[in-house]
Simulated scan of single mutants.
Amino acid sequence: MENDEFSEALGIAPDAKIGAHHRHKTSFRGISTRQRLRILTASAVDQDFLDEICELKGLEQLTLEWPVTAASLAGLSALPGLRTLRIDSPRNVTDFTPITRISRLTRLDIENAKHLTELRWIRPLKDRLFALGIDGSINTTQKIESIDPLDGFAFEELTLTNVSVADKDLSPLINCRNLKKLRCAKSVSTFEGFMTLADARPDMACDWFSPEHWPGRKWRR
């Protein structure tokens, strides 16, 4: 009977490998029994919900959709097989370092993180990430001090959507030798910054490398 109640509340079958759940009060209770889950999308994630999610040792892909009210990400390091993590609007998280202890993580996307203004914490992932996204939301610009901590990262894809970088310096990306796709806001740098990166890395694709996006500006090589 208890399992039937869990099934009805969770909307996730006991043997499901893919699941989604939007929390309403304590409707998430019992999700830790879904040990066959490999892909999970969860929304309205408070701390108790996240702590129970972190008991799903087989998870490979986890999406925490808006709103995320949990304050601690510490439990994520207990997910040994997690490869892809997306967190949308973690309004109460001030410490992102537990993410660096997810040993098999290769894709990370953090959107609209109120307390994420610097990237030094992410350095331990330098040689592990294939793709990284640090993004703002439709209505909120993500403000970052500098992308200097990303110097030499091994990723192939970097997304900085609706992001403003205080120092406007893209030069650290010159040393990201595997980086092929840069998707970002125009506000990340200046015309000169984008053109300098384009000259240094002709193998990299970015919309802002095209002078047609900069009316009235001409790059002198």
Rank of each mutant, 00 (worst) to 15 (best):
P124C: 04
T69G: 08
D88Y: 13
L56P: 11
S32Q: 15
R128Y: 05
S103M: 09
S146A: 08
A198N: 11
R23Q: 13
I122Q: 01
T69D: 01
L64H: 03
L85A: 05
V188C: 09
A154K: 12
L150E: 00
P149A: 04
V163H: 03
I174T: 14
L79G: 00
I122C: 02
Q142E: 02
P14G: 06
D203T: 05
D46N: 12
G136T: 04
L197V: 11
K114Q: 12
A16F: 04
I53P: 06
A74H: 00
E2L: 12
A42D: 02
S137R: 11
L160A: 04
D169S: 11
Q142Y: 08
W66I: 15
P149I: 01
D51R: 00
S72G: 07
P215C: 07
H22W: 13
D95Q: 00
Q35S: 15
F155W: 00
G136N: 05
T190A: 05
R83Y: 06
I138V: 14
T41V: 14
L73E: 08
C54Q: 01
A166G: 09
S189R: 00
R123C: 10
G75C: 01
R101M: 04
D109Q: 13
F130A: 15
I134Y: 04
S89C: 12
V188I: 11
L73C: 05
K180P: 06
F6D: 11
F28L: 08
L182C: 08
E192F: 10
A71D: 02
S171Q: 07
W219A: 04
L108E: 06
N162P: 10
T117N: 14
S27G: 05
S187G: 15
N178P: 11
L59E: 02
L108W: 04
R201Q: 01
R29G: 10
D127V: 13
A185L: 10
I12P: 07
D46R: 04
E8H: 14
I39C: 11
I147S: 01
R183F: 14
R83C: 09
L132W: 00
W121C: 02
P90R: 02
K218N: 11
R107Y: 11
F49D: 03
A71V: 01
E60C: 08
T161C: 12
G19C: 07
R86S: 10
T84S: 09
A154Y: 08
N175Q: 15
K143W: 10
R83D: 07
P98A: 03
A44P: 08
I99G: 01
G152L: 05
L105S: 02
S164D: 13
P172N: 07
T161K: 13
T26D: 13
R201M: 05
E118H: 12
D109P: 01
D88I: 11
D4L: 15
G193F: 04
